[in-house]
Computed example of a mutant assay.
Amino acid sequence: MTTTPERGQSIPDASHLYEVERRARHLERPGFRITELQLSPDQTVPWHSHTHVGDTFYVLDGRMRLFLQAPKESVELGPGESYAVAPGRPHLVTNAGDASLTFLVLQGVGQYDYVPLVSRA
């Protein structure tokens, strides 16, 4: 049985917390990793932050919309575009199109964690 983290509780792996069409880890070294994610039009990566690492998103196919806090911001990206989210900055990743979104997320440099900002029932 998988336990659900409380809001603000740091966890080392969040892959069980949200569904994606596909997830592939391309590289993982101490302090750095590259993951490819594919989201359907109705899938999201929920609100979260990271304590020590930033996320750099690079869109391969489709349209991505990032919602960010501190400060509040919305960013839309297409193929070949990227955006870096600083450590500690809350963000939500959504598919902004009507077809699958495929993107890379580069995470580092530092110890990875996932801090959910919304409690899940």
Rank of each mutant, 00 (worst) to 15 (best):
P5Y: 05
L117G: 14
E76H: 04
R33H: 07
E6S: 15
R120T: 02
H50N: 09
V59R: 00
T44K: 01
T44P: 00
F67M: 14
A86H: 08
Q43L: 00
I34D: 07
T4K: 14
F57N: 01
Y112E: 11
D13W: 01
V20F: 02
P87F: 05
L101Y: 10
T2E: 13
G110S: 03
H91A: 01
S82Q: 12
Y112F: 11
P90F: 06
P5D: 08
H26G: 08
V53S: 06
Q69E: 11
V59C: 06
T2A: 15
L66S: 03
E19S: 07
P79C: 03
T2D: 09
A24S: 15
D42N: 08
S40K: 12
L101P: 04
E73T: 10
A99Q: 08
Q69A: 14
D42K: 11
H50D: 06
E21K: 13
V118G: 05
V59F: 04
T94W: 07
P71Q: 03
P30C: 06
L68Q: 06
L27S: 01
G78F: 10
Y112L: 04
S82H: 11
V20W: 04
S49K: 13
V115L: 00
I11W: 09
A121E: 06
Y58P: 06
A121P: 12
G54F: 01
L92I: 05
G31K: 12
V109A: 15
Q107A: 13
S40H: 03
P87M: 09
